[in-house]
Design a protein around this nucleic acid. Structure first.
Length: 657
RNA sequence: GGGCGCGUAGCUCAAUCGGAUAGAGCAUCAGAUUUCUAAUCUGAGGGUUGCAGGUUCGAUUCCUGCCGCGCCUACCA
């Protein structure tokens, strides 16, 4: 409702300005006053107009307030401070609409959206950094769906890279395992943990003797070529690890629709198709000399590096700095090249498609598909979308920009405009956390504020370990509180609490903030956490259960909202209603700014206001029947909206806490 | 060297194109439970928003310069 009223107010103000002053503002800025006593919306536009109209802001504000006339849904507009215009909504009307859940739907943009997230190298267990990625991505998917968009969720699998080769080297050269032995290991419940250690050992082995790198090179070559025993082993390993990743993410209710793999980008010659187009368009240039001799390179964004010196050699060397090698001198294509081809496919610009087969069925019967060279004839249509979001950490901004530049250089400006790098900062360990985990830190590391997670060093908190720890911790608490419930019921509740805590933790930080991971904070169930918000809903539900009333089928007839919400002395409860009305508004904002943290903040604020209300207003013991029904309506609305916000965050509400 | 980002309370973080008295959680201290379960609530202390200028009616936010920190800057993916 909040969003709807804001749009209406903006529309009215825009019309009034046009009529009265003949001015057209590009955007009517509407804010929220610092305190609810001042009203529900604040317009600072008089300050902006002061110069253009050559009048004092206060004078302009006065004129607008006096002249704008009634706006439906609002009580009045009033002048405040040095020139603010504050708007007061008709509380009764908003409450009635909210209670009956009749918000007019907003327009939905057409076209399918593709969200790519997770993209974990399939050579080791997922860690906390991957959790941030997947939770941000999955929440963004839920946001888009809540806004009515059709969404495809993709998880790109780099199954032919050096990381996979390293684990293959580990099995074949360090452990001398046979194929049968590897198959046996791959069927174990936490094969990815085994690979985690092996990957770190292989990395160590290369460091011990540079000669060993030759083994890696040969292994990688065999994998890329395909059709040999090494490639088959790599496939066996990467598919087994991939399954483990899907299982891990499914524990957090994160699902994918399609898993495009790098092996198919190679074997289905996506790159060849892209290469032809890139050469034709002159995007790629063959270097005949210099550092990049024999490579196909792309010029960096028209970085007009002004060369002040007149030396030709200087110009040359700077020009080389601006080049990005796409095809190496040995003829193989690098990561960025494959990514360009992949993104042309995403937008339906490549003229080729993957083969598809079903790969993983979720417990809810949803199917996740995977790329293959020869697929089944019947499959859903992926790719060819209107808009894409790539959830990839900020360290890859450079590579992402290269892909966008390539699209532009090919003349696909519209596609490039609808390509969003959903960028976020990494998760790192605090030195204390690293020490707790028993990692040896250098003296230099000890002075750092945080230490980067490194799969290569085997340095980090594994996703499943963290989830296990969270569940165990929640279970202990639930066991103590609800001994009458069955163990299965208690486990379900503990799991929901653990997932709520983890998802909330990863969402409460803004994207550009490095999360310095700390067990104490991540394991907390108190204060600004997921369980705090879940608990508020459980409390609301308990009121209805104890009262023998169905919160979803609760008659609103005859509730005198005006009586209980109007006036400055009713602000406390009104604030709760106002917060509850903002969900759609917050969802829109989170999408527009690609910032799910707003959602988390909103959930917490709503829960906090409710807990305070819960404490101050006894409901079931309320003697005044009319007042009691109003209070119940308040609880019902907050419960519904908070449940909705949590569900967009992928957080379920336990039956009891 | 260049590019991107960060610096706010003891700690971890917020602050919606630049807006009204810079807000939360944790930690500390003092309180609240015969009640719809305290995973809760109430209150207190805690700030020169890294430093110095500039723009503006107004700057945590924008600009410039410093200081400190992180990431990127491979024919690795």
């Amino acid at each position: 409702m909040y969003r709807y009223l804001e749009n209406r107010l903006a529309h009215h103000v825009r019309e009034f300005l046009r009529r009265t002053y003949d001015v057209e503002l590009p955007k009517i800025v509407i804010e929220q006053p610092p305190r609810v006593e001042l009203g529900e919306y604040a317009l600072p536009l008089a300050f902006e107009l002061a110069k253009r109209l050559r009048k004092a802001p206060r004078k302009i504000a006065e004129e607008i307030v006096a002249g704008i006339g009634p706006v439906e849904g609002f009580e009045k507009l009033e002048l405040a401070g040095a020139g603010y215009i504050n708007a007061r909504v008709n509380r009764e009307a908003l409450a009635e609409a909210l209670a009956s859940n009749t918000e007019p739907p907003a327009e939905t943009q057409p076209g399918k959206v593709l969200v790519e997230h997770s993209s974990i190298n399939p050579n080791k267990a997922a860690h906390i950094g991957h959790l941030r990625n997947a939770i941000l991505g999955d929440t963004f998917v839920r946001l888009l769906k809540a806004a009515g968009r059709e969404v495809d969720v993709q998880n790109y699998i780099d199954n032919t890279g050096v990381q996979v080769a390293d684990v293959v080297v580990g099995f074949l050269h360090l452990e001398k395992k046979s194929r049968a032995e590897i198959e046996q290991l791959a069927s174990q419940p936490r094969f990815d943990y085994y690979c985690w250690d092996l990957y770190a050992r292989a990395s160590q082995w290369y460091a011990e003797d540079k000669q060993n790198l030759e083994v890696r090179r040969q292994t990688l070559h065999a994998i890329e070529e395909g059709g040999n025993e090494t490639a088959a082993l790599a496939d066996l390993i990467s598919v087994a690890v991939l399954r483990r990743h899907l299982e891990t993410m499914d524990r957090l209710d994160i699902e994918y629709d399609f898993l495009p793999r790098e092996s198919e980008i190679l074997h289905l010659h996506f790159w060849d198709a892209a290469f032809t187009k890139l050469k034709e368009a002159g995007v790629l240039v063959y270097e005949n000399e210099g550092k990049n001799k024999g490579c196909w390179v792309m010029r960096r964004r028209n970085s007009t590096t002004e060369v002040t010196g007149t030396e030709e050699a200087d110009k040359e060397s700077i020009a080389e700095e601006d080049q990005k090698v796409i095809v190496r001198s040995n003829g193989t294509v690098g990561y960025v090249g494959k990514d360009i081809a992949y993104h042309m496919w995403k937008f339906g610009l490549l003229g080729r498609d993957f083969g598809y087969r079903e790969f993983y069925r979720y417990p809810n019967q949803h199917d996740c598909w995977i790329s293959t060279t020869d697929g089944v004839p019947d499959h859903p249509h992926f790719g060819d979308v209107a808009e894409i979001y790539n959830v990839i950490d900020t360290r890859q901004a450079e590579a992402q920009n290269a892909v966008i530049e390539a699209l532009r250089a090919l003349g696909h400006n519209e596609a490039a405009d609808r390509y969003t790098h959903f960028s976020y900062e990494m998760v790192a360990l605090t030195p204390r956390c690293a020490a707790e985990m028993g990692y040896q830190l250098s003296d230099e590391d000890k002075t750092r504020s945080y230490i980067e997670v490194s799969g290569r060093k085997g340095f980090g908190v594994k996703a499943d370990d963290l989830i296990d720890t969270l569940i165990a911790s929640a279970k202990k608490e639930v066991d103590g509180r609800h001994p009458q419930l069955s163990d299965a019921e208690r486990t379900t509740i503990a799991t929901q609490i653990a997932v709520g805590a983890l998802r909330y933790f990863m969402l409460k930080f803004t994207k550009q903030s490095v999360i310095a991971f700390d067990f104490k904070e991540a394991l907390s169930f108190e204060g600004e956490t997921g369980p705090y918000a879940q608990y508020a809903v459980v409390r609301a539900t308990n009121i209805f259960r104890k009262g023998g009333i169905d919160p979803d089928d609760f008659s609103l007839a005859g509730i005198d909202f005006a009586h209980y919400l109007s006036g400055q002395d009713r602000n406390e409860i009104w604030e709760l209603w106002l917060a509850a009305s903002k969900t759609s508004y917050i969802i829109d904002q989170s999408i527009a700014t690609t910032e799910p943290a707003y959602l988390a903040k909103h959930a917490f604020q709503l829960a906090q206001l409710f807990n305070s209300f819960y404490h101050s207003y006894p409901i079931l013991s309320e003697a005044d029947e009319s007042r009691k029904r109003f209070l119940l309506a308040t609880v019902a609305v907050v419960r519904r909206e908070l449940t909705r916000v949590l569900s967009v965050m992928g957080i379920k509400v336990p039956a009891a806490m």
